[in-house]
Write a protein that binds this DNA or RNA. Sequence first.
DNA 1: CTTTACCCTGTACTATGGTACAGGGTTTAT
DNA 2: ATAAACCCTGTACCATAGTACAGGGTAAAG
Lengths: 138, 138
Amino acid sequence: MRYRISELAEKCSVNKETIRYYERVGLLSKPSRTNAGYRIYPEETVHRMQFIKRMQDLGFSLAEIDKLLGVVDKDNERCMDMYDFLNQKVDEVQKKISDFKRIERMLINLKECCPDEKSLYECPIIDILMNEEKNSKM
Amino acid sequence: MRYRISELAEKCSVNKETIRYYERVGLLSKPSRTNAGYRIYPEETVHRMQFIKRMQDLGFSLAEIDKLLGVVDKDNERCMDMYDFLNQKVDEVQKKISDFKRIERMLINLKECCPDEKSLYECPIIDILMNEEKNSKM
DNA sequence: CTTTACCCTGTACTATGGTACAGGGTTTAT
DNA sequence: ATAAACCCTGTACCATAGTACAGGGTAAAG
């Protein structure tokens, strides 16, 4: 399956302009073109876009994603010091997982304080939260 | 303990300008002032700043953090529809936790492909990755 | 064969989250 | 009593990650 830019955009739930933007900044390589100069993308680009979106959703910057894609592209330059980069990212990810678990508990606790399942007028738990912040080392 | 702006900034590892910026956008309430107009912060603001930083690190926007702080501030307006907001955030957080776990495995796998603990020249796992992307529903 | 729906490039604009002065007053250490 | 180190407001600027035209060419459906 080959895609025109708007088909790719649709399939990946992004804006066409975003695809052109990613090309400009180097996240997507220059695609082949029709005679008239229309961009044509292979199926692979769909997966690449989905990978980018997923990583971005998790808070990775486009620069970090680009670095990781250096592996996919077997690009020597971007693969330099990949080990250290990966180590750092693994640490960050592990910290985030544990922070997210704390936040999950906090949100669930807060939720249980909403009296009519609508708003929230008072919550004794929030003081505990702030105290937790106080006692945890950043 | 009461803090001047630069003491607070130091203690929270942020820029003074950031503190003033947070005040401007309403994340921090207007602090008390000395006769000369210098801002003076109570200990509480340190915890509030740490909470903001932690949430921001996890990818929450300042607007979302502000919404959550509505609970701390017992602010009726921001507490409106808090239940739905919390429900949505809990879902998002749970999705992120599971995504992060996948990414963690991916990063560790990639790391093991770095031959000399420096760079990374080839990794058969990356194809698996892209295939994983292919077969997973977003 | 023309209208509508695409596509192109290039440039400008947007939102978010800050950061950096400029110009001027205050506090503190010497 | 004066320099260094701090504070103030206001405005301008920055990076990131897009988004929105303008002006002009192409493709396909009626």
